[in-house]
Design a protein around this nucleic acid. Structure first.
Lengths: 248, 248
DNA sequence: CGTGGAATTGAACGTCGTCAAGGACCGTGG
DNA sequence: CCACGGTCCTTGACGACGTTCAATTCCACG
């Protein structure tokens, strides 16, 4: 495995993000950085990294690319229950439960670092700040999951899609994947439909409604938000749940 | 505060439940039992224990009664994102994040134990098994939240309500609140509507559909499930997410 | 009794899903 | 070079599921 400078900068990104959740000690950063660089892996788009029912014995930290957590019903209906963005980890501590309750799939080519359970446990035992940072991540995930519940249960199609775009934008911003008012949107409308609980057809019409009202431009897999505040208004978006910034 | 024998048996229930998630050492049980008995509190029905935006500095463990986590939109639309049943804790570790992202309300009169943050942290520091048990609880909650996402996003009204009834029944069983094939259902149809993302009117019609098909009886706040397997079939219910039983 | 919350019913409407077809784009192979 | 197939996006027509509004019944409680 070769260690490019780009890999190193991706690892930096992970550490910076965790550091926002909990300030990390110098040793914590160093040992995490080492563990990440040691476990680098690549995956193509559209692969299942883990499937519902699988036992888990490692933690994966995403360095680049988009993934999603999803669940399926017997008859094929699928619900994406969350996205996973660069800097986030897939299933820290998931090994505390016997098996996965959901699946994780790549939506783009992905670079990630795999840390075996024993290694992860010794890392977090040695650095309390690291352990807390990963736990904070789990808690924030929990909060996002709750926000998705009200999104799916109580928002209209237009509000749901607007809300999803706001959330994606706000989650990509702190990891430097937002350029002024636009970001990549490397997923199909089918995926967006599965994330918002809509049919593809209706998702498409809803996106066009957002386009027609001038709030967004979505073309060539690039999302441009013309007026973020206005988009948040139509989404009834309240950002507190992301906990992107620490209480000072 | 008086310590009745009934309080003691409720505390036993909490410990038994945590013990299913992680085997607890004798000392862990003893110190937790002590902390719980020391922090007993009561609340009436329909009270907000914590509201979105509040800082948290304690953990509440529910000894009896039903609560719910919910989120609201500006215009009053409300989504119940989860229930909290006896034996479960409200927000263990929530103090790791600055403020609550959702509110917690009592749906019935409730008995709970409040453990201050410092106390909780020393408890879990001294007993690793206890810490892991509480973390497991958080992880299971996460899994439940994901199941609710697919419930709200991809199931029909009939499936949603059937699924909710299955889940409630299965979560109440291990804490001894199920009697043969029936359990209490001490909430209004308005609450059930807010939990399933339906209007009250349509929830009512859906419940009647379940009644008409002979699957359930719901009367006088008692839910009787005539054929649990059949109900699970109509709900497309797959129980693994509750992780009620440990891998041996 | 009378009051108020909860459950229930009816009717009309609307959002969203389904089905089906057409178009844009892209890589592959003849 | 162009035909071909595949995937994704888009549009139209229609119907169904679920919402809204409003009225009625039921029941516990004072």
């Amino acid at each position: 495995m070769s260690l490019s400078t780009s890999d190193r900068s991706l690892v930096e990104l992970v550490i910076r993000r965790l550091n926002v959740l909990r300030p990390l000690s110098t040793e914590a950063r160093a040992s995490l950085e080492y563990a990440l660089l040691e476990g680098l892996e690549h995956a193509g788009a559209g692969e299942d990294l883990i499937s519902e029912g699988d036992p888990v014995d490692s933690v994966r930290v995403v360095l680049s690319g988009w993934l999603c957590r999803y669940k399926s019903l017997e008859d094929g209906r699928r619900q994406i229950v969350n996205f996973i963005f660069p800097g986030e980890s897939c299933d820290s501590h998931a090994f505390l439960l016997p098996v996965m309750d959901h699946s994780i799939a790549t939506m783009t080519p992905v670079v990630y670092a795999e840390i075996k359970r024993a290694r992860f446990e010794s890392l977090t035992r040695d650095a309390r700040s690291l352990a807390e940072a990963f736990w904070c991540e789990t808690l924030v995930n929990n909060a996002i999951q709750r926000e998705w519940a009200i999104n799916l249960g109580r928002r209209t199609a237009l509000e749901r899609v607007a809300h999803l775009f706001c959330e994606i934008f706000e989650r990509l911003r702190p990891v430097g994947m937002v350029d002024a008012n636009s970001c990549v949107m490397p997923v199909t409308q089918m995926d967006l439909a599965d994330a918002t609980g809509l049919s593809v057809v209706h998702l498409n019409r809803t996106v066009q409604e957002l386009r027609a009202s001038g709030l967004i431009v979505l073309r060539d897999r690039i999302l441009t938000i013309n007026d973020l505040d206005a988009l948040k208004d139509t989404a009834l978006y309240s950002p507190s749940y992301l906990q992107l910034y620490r209480r000072s």
